[in-house]
Structure formats: C-alpha cells, structure tokens
C-alpha cells in the first residue's frame, strides 16, 4: 500500500537533515507502529507524507498503491487515499464541523470522479459514525475543533477518518493528551476501520496505545532512520527498557 524508499528530507528554511534514508513498506490490511525518541523524525515523516510545506525531499521516494505521492498537492494525496490524524488538530473558527466534513467528503469524491453525496445520505452517514465515537449533534454543529477538549479533538479526527475512508491512515501521536477512557474510545474507532484494503501507520511514544490498537509490525526510529523492525514484542521491550539499549545496539 505505502512504500517508502530511502527517503531523505531536510527543512526548507535551514540546512538541517531530518530524515536520512527511511525505508518502510506498509501492506494493505496491516497496522505498522513507529516508536522512537523525541526528535527522531517521526512527526516529520507524517508531515512529509501528507504534503505539509516547509520540507524538502532531497532523495528517495514514497508511493501509495504504486503512485508517486511526493509530487502531489496535499488535497491530491488526500483524494488518493492518504489521511493524517494530526497530533494537534487545528481549530477553524467560523467553519462548522458538519460543513467541513461535507466539503471534504464531496471534494474527494469529485476529485475521484464520483458523484457527490446527497445531503440526506451524508447526514445519515455522519450521524451513525459520530454516534459510535460518542460525538453528539452539538459537537457536529460547532466550529471545527474550537473549544473542543483534547479528547474531543482526537475523536473528531477519527470521525473524519471514518467519513473519508482513506486507504492509508497515518496517526501522529493520537494518544497524546488522552485519558484512559478517551484512548479506549479512539482506539475502538480506529479498530472499527481496520480492513483488508486499508493500511495504518501509528506513530506513538507509548506502548499503551498499542495495547488497544494491536500492531502487526513495530519499527523503532532514531536519528532519521528506521533502525529496528520487529513484532509487537518490540514495543514491550521499549516500554520496559527505554530506547537506550536499542540505540546502543544499533550504534546510533
């Protein structure tokens, strides 16, 4: 599904290399987790994949279902099936959550040459999906993320994911700022979307989230590279011993 080869990325504004040759393949139907110390490049990877400004790809490639995504605009990547659940979802005063969702859903359908959803079909869909995430009608009416609690913001990200039905979901520290109950709710939302045709890349600091969203593969990232790959047991190892041993072992 998602294939990243030898990806090198530097900051546009300064001469600082962040990613130094990332290789990663996420197959459809699989959940990959990326863990790693602060500053290892995890969030940069998620931003580069979603097309945020400020980064320059100096080498390597990234494809989604065989299509080069690095040349695409963010909206084209979204239509192609990339979805980033933000670590810090953005507040947009004045734009209703419902308007935002409908605009996004229909923009993607249009970009893919599909018919736009009728108002009533959309409403039915959004209400059903919101309900499972315990998002009430009031929250749907409010401006996007404005005045939302940390947990509400993250649930709102998962609602967007559920509505947009992407091929490749990237979750950037979705567990940050969540209490135990909220984490459970968000994880259930993600698990409900696990599907044979869909890949997940879950970026997290903590094993905790991976108790709820069980990964197939765990990668450890450090200094702009993936230095170790293993099964779920790798996350447990990090939880128990920290990164020091692994880093030393891999000579970072």
């Amino acid at each position: 599904m998602l294939e990243i080869k030898n990806l090198h990325v530097k900051l546009e504004e300064e001469d600082k290399q962040i990613l130094k040759g990332v290789n990663l393949t996420v197959e459809a139907g699989k959940v990959h987790a990326i863990m790693g110390p602060n500053g290892s490049g995890k969030s940069t990877l998620s931003y580069v994949l979603s097309g945020r400004d400020g980064y320059e790809v100096t080498d390597g490639e990234a494809t989604l279902a065989g299509e080069d995504i690095l040349e695409m605009e963010p909206e084209e990547r979204a239509a192609a099936g990339i979805f980033l659940a933000f670590q810090y979802p953005v507040e947009i005063p004045g734009v209703g959550n419902m308007t935002f969702l409908r605009t996004a859903v229909n923009a993607q359908r249009k970009a893919r040459g599909e018919e736009e959803l009728s108002a009533s079909d959309f409403l039915k869909d959004v209400r059903a999906k919101a309900k499972t995430l315990k998002i009430d009608a009031e929250m749907l009416k409010r401006p996007v993320n404005v005045g939302f609690s940390g947990g509400e913001k993250k649930r709102n990200e998962i609602l967007q994911m559920a509505m947009l039905e992407p091929k490749m979901c990237i979750l950037d520290e979705t567990d940050s700022g969540l209490d135990v109950d909220a984490m459970k709710l968000v994880s259930e939302g993600v698990n409900a979307l696990r599907d044979e045709g869909r890949g997940f890349l879950v970026i997290t600091h903590y094993q905790r989230l991976l108790d709820h969203i069980k990964p197939d593969v765990v990668h450890i990232m450090a200094d702009g590279r993936i230095i170790k790959t293993g099964g779920p047991e790798l996350a447990l190892e990090v939880e128990n011993n920290g990164y020091a041993d692994i880093l030393a072992e891999e000579g970072v």
């Binding site: 996004a104 923009a107 401006p143």
Partner: peptide
C-alpha cells in the same frame, strides 16, 4: 493545510476560511 489534508482544494479552502472570517 488542515483543510487541504482532508482533500479540500486550496481555493475552496481559502474561500471557506474567508467566509469564516
């Protein structure tokens, strides 16, 4: 960027933000 990352084209996103303003 948030709007674009959800698939909303730049000009439509800019209009949405303008109306919101």
């Amino acid at each position: 960027f948030y709007l674009r990352s959800r698939g909303v084209p730049t000009d439509v996103a800019a209009d949405l933000l303008t109306l919101a303003f």
